[in-house]
């Protein structure tokens, strides 16, 4: 059963409140932009660890995930 970008978005949002999320991918490699208030006060490594913890063992279905993680404030600055 192939994992779709929508699956990945749902997996992440089930465990992390997201102000914005966009996932693209071919079923094996995925690129995600994730904006969450839970990233506040965390360094990039901690932000990525949080996403991996939320994904848990579903990571096995996601061969490779490239992430850009931002707080709502960082995201607003980029708009």
């Amino acid at each position: 059963m192939k994992t779709t970008p929508q699956n990945v978005e749902d997996f992440i949002q089930q465990g992390l409140p997201c102000e914005y999320i966009r996932v693209e991918g071919d079923g094996r490699h995925f690129d995600a932009v994730i904006v969450s208030p839970d990233f506040e006060g965390k360094g990039m490594l901690q932000q990525h660890k949080l996403v991996y913890q939320v994904l848990g063992d579903r990571m096995e279905r996601i061969h490779a995930l490239s992430m850009k993680t931002m707080t709502p404030a960082q995201w607003a600055k980029q708009q």
Partner: peptide, 19 residues
């Protein structure tokens, strides 16, 4: 940290290729 690659500087995990 569940994925590879992993880069360490002075014994500390920096992160994967994105970071």
């Amino acid at each position: 940290f569940p994925t590879f690659p992993q880069c360490y500087i002075n014994g500390e995990l920096i992160g994967g290729s994105d970071i």
